[in-house]
Design a protein around this nucleic acid. Structure first.
Lengths: 350, 350
DNA sequence: ACAAGACGATTATGCGCATTATTATCGGTC
DNA sequence: GACCGATAATAATGCGCATAATCGTCTTGT
């Protein structure tokens, strides 16, 4: 804030035109019925350059214009449990794209966390208005909020697939289903026949997607799905032993290292006795440098592309439906926790 | 954005008062010459509750009020080289405090990066105005920008010590000098006599502070300072050998792991032959889980406290000078890279 | 010579709030 | 009964911009 900010009125005075004219030139979009001569236009442009004018984003927004700010709302609290480890990469992608586009990022940290979740309260809705649009991320299922979002015509986009609300929610997600499928197919190709899915059977999109990929891959291979919902590592190990699993795919909320240790305590080596594949980056902090096999969610790219999508939605309201949704491929991670099943693990009499 | 946002005018209508009255009640601060009866006040309060009114932050700001948004400006680009690893923790602290205070965070990612540094251009200054105040972080020495900041009376605070501009720059920093001093004293107590400082002799505050702590600790112990400015790990090792150093303190920009490997290649073990202490968290990503000895900068706390300081500056403009600056203690990290010097490393004839 | 456009702008208004200046009413005083 | 100080509020203004509504001045056709 310089001593006296330069306003459109200042520019107008210098160019010898009205404030409105300056606004027209700046937005490069003449309302119907308004015309400007090339010469006037140039005078205004010169004045802008000389004065070093730059728009006041607050006034812009109040007057119903755009201000090159996009909001980021995370449903889950960002910190407890090192949440930033998970959200961080998305943020990096968002910021990277924002930098390219000359956009500022507003983090809605003021929305109080209730029961571990941020909510879009009345206050929250009001605050969204500061930004031209908003990116939403995190698990969340409050129907009324989603509906409200759609009703208001406020530009927004989700990071992470959202198939509810009749597919009208714009998003950029990752193809968990396909990635899980490929990972399982790889196990099958290696000779694994008893492959477990370790994780809770939730109703959230990532979980159902992963399960779908797992189930379909096994079905296509003529094998059966085996859900291991147990929470406790030792219970998981018990299931592995009991069902004579030679490989498990692991939901990323589960602590792979704990499982690894539990397996070791029972004399099972990874990957010799059991292959372990991680379906996405682990949500907890890794304590050891081990390279887990599985796949990686392109979180940075998701963040960046979501911002790009949102920009389009803000700029034009006639974005084709097909462009509203985008699934990015996950990268397979070779890692060191997968191997062909050892012979003795194979039942001699299937 | 609900269908029709509720404004102060709506509340006023319901309470049967004027819009101004609502504003007075909300801000809980009557301008000289204005009085409100307790009864009217209550009616307004009720109307606010019933309508669920919540202020429009944009209008608030345009009218010269506060809007509970604080900006964060980082001088260095946030990403290249995994910068977020360094800035991340500050951000976490800031966000944490922001959540407590009900404040939103605006990241000024729109400021273009020129020569690896973000700059506060005219455009940047203008954009700062969106927020009530701003936190600045990163190395930076542009005098004119600092002066401008002071001139405009815009509330701001630095994260990281800033002694320039006659001590008028508010900051929350870490006590590099004291931490370095204690680390060196610890080495001396262990019996080390030839302790090198590995790092560039820059003019930036962290560097000069660390050097000061190092130099003073050695001086007080009657020992001489030994700067090892070499960049190349092998060159550093050469200096270590040549000067028969038994310990080195390492500037965090240096890659400790590379140095470790270079030492190993020359047959020097850490910490048996050479103790290595890190003066702060390493700026690069660690590839091995080794626990480096040294000290840790309380980055999260710095972020949080800086936000608190900024809040005070925004709320009241009569903050005592003494409260404008704050140095936090660094935590000493025990680690596994320090040990007493082995006898054979000690010169028999000093 | 005069209406009908085309041309090139300007004036006016409002966004939602903070704040300043102003007004209205009443009890008491000289 | 005119005057004053309190009391309790309201009207008016402006922040800087986008945008709708309006207004001159030329040209051109007839």
């Amino acid at each position: 804030m310089p001593k006296r900010r330069i306003t459109q009125a200042d520019v107008a005075a210098m160019a010898g035109v009205s404030q409105a004219t300056v606004s027209f030139v700046l937005n490069d979009r003449l309302p119907a019925g308004v015309r400007l001569s090339a010469e006037t236009r140039q005078r205004v442009l010169d004045a802008i350059r000389i004065t070093g004018y730059s728009a006041n984003p607050v006034a812009q927004r109040l007057a119903g214009g755009r201000n090159q700010i996009i909001g980021v709302f995370t449903y889950e609290a960002t910190f407890p449990g090192g949440g930033r480890d998970f959200y961080g990469p998305f943020l990096v992608g968002i910021e990277h794209a924002a930098e390219q586009l000359g956009i500022d990022i507003l983090l809605f940290t003021s929305a109080r966390v209730v029961e571990g979740r941020r909510r879009l309260t009345r206050d929250g809705w009001q605050r969204l208005g500061i930004a031209d649009g908003c990116l939403l991320l995190g698990q969340h299922e409050d129907r009324s909020e989603l509906q409200h979002l759609l009703d208001t015509n406020y530009p927004f986009a989700f990071i992470g697939k959202r198939s509810s609300e009749g597919g009208r929610l714009p998003y950029v997600g990752a193809d968990y289903t396909g990635a899980t499928r490929r990972v399982v197919e790889r196990l099958v190709a290696l000779g694994h026949r008893r492959i477990g899915y370790v994780g809770a059977m939730g109703t959230d999109q990532p979980t159902t997607d992963r399960w779908e990929g797992y189930r379909d891959a096994l079905r296509d291979a003529g094998l059966g799905a085996r859900l291991v919902p147990e929470e406790e590592p030792d219970a998981v190990v018990a299931a592995v032993v009991e069902q004579r699993l030679t490989a498990v795919v692991l939901s990323p909320e589960r602590d792979a290292e704990e499982l690894h240790d539990a397996l070791a305590r029972h004399g099972l080596d990874v990957p010799r006795d059991v292959s372990v594949l991680l379906l996405g980056q682990p949500h907890h902090r890794l304590r050891r440098p081990q390279q887990w096999s599985g796949f990686a969610i392109p979180r940075e790219e998701m963040g960046a592309r979501a911002l790009l999508l949102l920009s389009r939605l803000i700029a034009a309201d006639d974005v084709p439906d097909a462009d509203l949704h985008r699934l990015l491929e996950c990268t397979e991670v070779e890692g060191a926790t997968v191997a062909a099943p050892t012979h003795h693990a194979e039942p001699l009499v299937p």
